[in-house]
Amino acid sequence: MIPGSFEYHRPSSVQEALGLLAKWGDDGRAIAGGHSLIPMMKLRLAKPAHLVDLRDIADLKGIRADGNDIVIGAMTTQYELIGSNLLVSKIPILRETSLQVADPQVRYVGTLGGNVANGDPGNDMPAVMMCLGATYHVMGKAGERRVAAREFYQGAYFTALEAGDLLTAVRIPMPPAGHGYAYEKLKRKIGDYATAAAAVVLTMSGGKVASCSIGLTNVAETPLWAEEAAKILNGSSLDAATVKRAVAAAEAITAPAADARGPAAYRTKMAGVMLTRALARAKSKAHG
């Protein structure tokens, strides 16, 4: 399993990287942690003639608060997300999710930007970003633009990124203090993609759901934002009957492929089970 030949570039700034990507067009490919791209290159399913390694670009790293948002550089690793005190206190679902991504070695190297940008429906972070209402900072020929995570995913490996674009950062509005959250992932083993997974962030007020957002992983060609299901839950006490209706609404938007994890119908049902469990756990963590 040997990749084809390529030329290697290691720019030190975003502008330099964009220049290289613009110069090489379809022959160029940005590489972040590499754990999706390098195996594809070894199988020769990807054959970039020019590899643009983003590892030395300081501007793509770091986690910082910006008003009511947290901005995370695209090259921030899962390991760094797990270790961030800021995230643990403000958006703890990120740590919970990161710990369920791949395995320890991959988490040292795998980046948030790579996870959300490559469009693999098996990746965990995209559904969480949709759930959180995150926005992606994208640099391209025409400068920076911002794309909502909920608008970003178009199909398996198809996203709003255009040739030559670079996803530079992820901007996440901080959920209110006291929010409840959970990322429930059913998988066969460590390192596996989800059979189905559900991300929930909610707030409670007087025993009722004040706000709720739901993301689903790996049960369609893209990650899913289950808007209708969340609407059903708003204002409810998460009683069994309402949860059942919401789960049915969430299941209705899934369109999973059959694979070794199970037939499509099973995976749809598992999305429902994961959502049910995520709701219960999120509720138990919420204050108010």
Binding site: M1, R10, H35, P39
Partner: peptide
């Protein structure tokens, strides 16, 4: 060779890394 088994693990800049999924040039 697909970063699952960890037999190629080395310690690189204080991190455990699967050296089958990294190019030598990246370790410069």
């Amino acid at each position: 060779e697909t970063s699952h088994c960890g037999a190629c693990t080395v310690d690189l800049n204080g991190k455990s890394v699967k050296s089958c999924t990294m190019f030598a040039v990246q370790a410069n």
